[in-house]
Amino acid sequence: MNRLLWVEDLSGHIDTPKGRLHILNGVSFCVHENECFGIIGESGSGKTMTALSVLRYAERLGFQIDAGAIVFEGEDVLGFNKRRLLHYNGGRVAVIPQDPMTSLDPLFTAESQLVETLRTHKKLTVKQAKAQAYAIAEKMRIAPEKLKCYPFQLSGGMLQRIVGAAAIACHPKMIIADEPTTALDVTVQLQYLKLLRDIQDEYGAAIVFISHDMHAVSMICDRIAVMYAGRIVECASKNGLLRNPRHPYTRALIRSANLSGEVRGKYDTIDGVPPDPLAKPVGCSFADRCPHSMPRCFAETPPKTTRDDHEVCCWACQKDESKT
């Protein structure tokens, strides 16, 4: 499979009155065509900022990139000029935002916003755009009469489909879904996730699924990356990660998510807290919470090691490998 998106060693910060927040500290991953790629992590891990960086929106929020590269379809995203960016956003990479209730302009109908998106990227008359809008709505299982409604008249689930429709309208190569199910009822979540997969199959777009919800990620993703304190600490195929998690953080995550559904006497939490982003990271960020940490973990940042297409950044894992 071809590499659609390649992020290499991306680092960046935001300056605040309190100090410099080191949000991304060398993020590296890649997404292939037609793949459903999940990024999982706690809030504050930098997953949203990674997505925003790929979209070139992070800089509007004051985020400054220190180092790294973002390559999409072989092109240097960080070097895009304004014109290319306008085409890139929405046309080649689309976003399904976290909160559908506030993501649409309350003064316009769903239909008009879909038409607007279509006409931004393609040369269409209003009539043609409307026809396409209705076609896409059908795919997203949106009843035609709902399109004529204003956002305040629609339920959360319906709105999520509408923003989804806006995302796929221009046939993007990649869709970034940032916590798409967080705002939905549990019952609707499943439906929605299935819908996303169907869309992907139909349109051949890659999906980057960002979430803190291990269950959702594990349901539809092909490959999963785990993010902690601004770094990808582990990345593997779904099965590979779930059956054989190597990084201590991943293991803890899976355990606390209780994916196996066992009945346990107590809840498993991970001791400690994520590091303060104001401090520049030295060594492995997880070291102070890790049951397997060694002196080396605190001093040197573990590099990425790959075995059988399963990547991990961990000194303890390396040591294990060398043993076997």
Partner: peptide, 26 residues
């Protein structure tokens, strides 16, 4: 700084549209 303006930009709308059609009207 609202969500819908952010989404409009991410849909690829140019700044003029964003400003006049969406932000200003609201």
């Amino acid at each position: 700084e609202s969500d819908h303006v952010k989404f409009a930009r991410l849909r690829g709308l140019n700044e003029r549209s964003v400003l006049f059609r969406h932000a200003l009207r609201n």
